[in-house]
């Protein structure tokens, strides 16, 4: 049986001290909408095309230095989700 290979993207959350929207629900929505095309894996996995960083507010306090030199998408709000989806579809 032939199967197209899914793209692999690492997922990293901020700690979620006081998020302005439901980060986990936002990621669930992203995963649902990309389920045929993208597999989301741990940010520690090196075999990925880039890292999706999901933060609860625009402070985006996640330390990005471990991801230097790699493709990083940062989602800080529900509005950013649509931007990320457009972006990722464009790349494909």
């Amino acid at each position: 049986m032939w199967m197209s290979k899914k793209r692999r993207i690492g997922l990293k959350y901020c700690g979620g001290c006081s998020p302005r929207y439901d980060r986990v629900q936002a990621v669930a929505s992203i995963k649902r909408r990309l389920e045929d095309r993208v597999e989301f894996v741990s940010y520690e996995d090196r075999d990925v095309e880039g890292i999706l960083v999901v933060t609860g507010c625009s402070t985006a306090c996640v330390d990005l230095t471990p991801f230097e030199g790699r493709l990083v998408w940062v989602v800080t709000s529900e509005q950013d989700v649509e931007g990320f989806l457009k972006n990722i579809c464009k790349i494909s």
Partner: peptide, 8 residues
Amino acid sequence: SPEHEDLV
């Protein structure tokens, strides 16, 4: 928890 380990 992936959603919180960045702080904890």
